[in-house]
Nucleic acid binder design. Structure first.
Lengths: 194, 194
DNA sequence: GTCTATACGGAGATAGAC
DNA sequence: GTCTATCTCCGTATAGAC
């Protein structure tokens, strides 16, 4: 098998396993079993476990960049784009209820490990923040763009955490509706509503 | 030293270490070093690591019950009590920016480990939820009490996650002010404000 | 109650055959 | 590129002396 393909399989499997079981708790044996290669073969592609983590973080970053770029292309208003972001908690409902937010839980874990790559993981969170800031600027809220962006991002993290703890679909739906209402009030030319 | 005292020291040290480094990442050696006892002595007090985790969760639960009871006693209005809850993110700012919320990060970690005690950990989150529900009922919002309680609890989890990721004190302050404003609008006899 | 010594398994990582 | 075999370290856990 081509090195590229195997490497890709390793990264994909590690991504899933890190999300489902956590980074520290996922062993080489787990990843090797998922990809159906030997533990030894592993080290041809990655010299250390940290290298795999870096590759996973980079993959996640690229995945999210691609997703945001798609929303930029397909939605024609900033409010519609922000709504896309808000609705990921519904789109990914099942996984979020099982494992929480992949970005939030990874940054939390790496912070506790004081892992060298924690800043790289935080960059994914920053990617969302900066994208949201741009949307709120486009929406005409330049002065409060960062405030609003962090509000939405924090909202998503809170919903993911509680969705995981309580497995309550109704809660997710209600929260999405509430924040979409809030967002609606920020669209220029609309009356603000509570 | 009395068995009780040593046991208590172990639980206290484990509580701190589980919070700071995570459960899976904290070894017996770490806890033993913090308490200044030998690893062997450990097993006189706890037969397994899971037993320590259970003791830590119980301690955390009792600590929070005590805290909530104090707020019940010292604050004379439900709105003031909810405000006490909201302000913990400021009171515990430094630790939250370093390690996130002790309750949220533990439930997230145990869920990924599929640890037998994960439901016990979730009970701490449920304790806050149920207490908040009672406050919102007292505030006269019986029909939406659970909705509002989860809103505040989710808010606190989101703020904790982002505070940890971005280390931004201003953000915490702004969020506290915003949600206190929201809470203010729910107090009977006040005009709702955006 | 607390210690030292030790068993045992699983982790990350390496060496070298194919 | 992929494998098997092996090394070393560190984790939980146990045994038995003091």
């Amino acid at each position: 098998m081509a090195a590229r393909a195997t490497r890709q399989q390793i990264v994909d499997a590690a991504d899933e396993l890190f999300y489902g079981h956590g980074y520290a708790q996922t062993s080489f044996a787990d990843i090797a079993a998922a990809v159906n290669i030997s533990r030894g073969n592993f080290y041809y592609h990655f010299k250390t476990k940290d290298e795999i983590l870096d590759a996973v973080i980079e993959k996640r970053l690229e995945d999210r960049e691609w997703l945001l770029a798609r929303w930029d292309e397909t939605s024609d208003s900033p409010a519609a784009r922000i709504a896309c972001f808000i609705r990921i908690v519904i789109v990914n409902q099942a996984k979020i209820m099982a494992y929480g937010c992949p970005v939030g839980t990874l940054t939390a874990e790496l912070a506790k490990l004081e892992h060298p790559s924690k800043n790289k993981a935080n960059a994914i969170m920053a990617l969302f923040r900066d994208w949201l800031i741009r949307q709120f600027i486009d929406l005409g809220h330049e002065a409060r763009a960062e405030d609003y962006a962090l509000h939405v991002l924090g909202w998503s993290q809170g919903v993911a955490t509680l969705a995981q703890a309580f497995k309550d679909e109704e809660y997710i739906t209600r929260e999405v509706e509430k924040i979409l209402g809030w967002l609606d009030g920020l669209v220029p030319g609309r009356a603000a509503k509570t």
